[in-house]
Amino acid sequence: MSSPTRPDDVLVLGEVKTGLLRHAHSVPEQQGVRLLDLVHGETVRYSDYPRPVVISAERLTGLDCPLPTASGRRSRAVGTAASGAILNGGRMLQAYARATLVRGAHGHRQEWSHYLARPGVVESVGKVDFADVAAGFAGSVAGRQGVDLGAVAARTMATVQAASVLDGRPPIRAAVVSWRWALVRADPDRPVRLTFLDDRTRLLLLSLGDCDAADAMNLVLDFALHDWLLSTVEDIVARADLESEAGERALRRVRPVLVHLLHHWMPAARLRGDLLPLFSALDRARGLSRRWDNAVRRIRDQFRLAEIQSVASAISESRALRSAVDDLRARSSSPGGPAETAR
């Protein structure tokens, strides 16, 4: 990657999609490695620390298209987007595409081999305003449409999900949530902007003074994963209708959360230390940890309540039984009772 000479010389654009693997059980590591073998002969990485994760090699997609801009101005870029997949905890699948935009040195498109020697980089052809592109891509303003990294990420996810070893019976109904993000290497004091477009699409505009594209993507991946966990759990809790439904049924609905999701919660576990303050700020803005704790407490309380209820009903049942026995005894000890006759 070329080293930036001016702070605004690099812009990273990316999209991350998070969903549940189409499979009844969580996938063990070695199967995960085979599942994420997207480039023949390339090493699939995996690690157990701090949580099980399998990381595919990256593929490249050729791009020659307009860039999105908030202002509606025209600008063009040529190069490649890098895409890959990550399996978290053998269960939660993330697919991403990203491209680093740099200023092209020429006013025209170069030989294709020039771009292939710079994988994951797109070069502008002609004039470009990076802040404008960042805002057009990951800001809420509806400007000019451009590069569709979401489509690249979606194809990557579909490739993994189409594997024949998957049984297509996930234990939970969960939506795929997208995070479209941009990192401007600029004034670090500029605020981070988080936008919720709809239930399934979120935008994140980061500006950091000094940050590697890979580190920034790690932050987004981690945040997207936990945001997905929260949305999925909140969604299940809402559907279970804990207030009015009969205990049994509501419990049956939230049980998969306890079995399959809760233990994956481990925010910011793989982040570089200097990104932690940013993660915390995002966490606070989204209310991530607070809402998670709340949802988890609610589910656990529900189970405890059910436990108490079942204990209470067991007690009252045993009380009733005892009084019936006492009753029987009292009757049998009285003269002329059935026991006397039998003797």
Binding site: G62, L63, D64, T80, A97, V147, D148, A151
Partner: peptide
Amino acid sequence: DRIVPVPAQGSDGS
């Protein structure tokens, strides 16, 4: 698997 086809103008990844 290492071949990345050269894109036509207008290829936006979709």
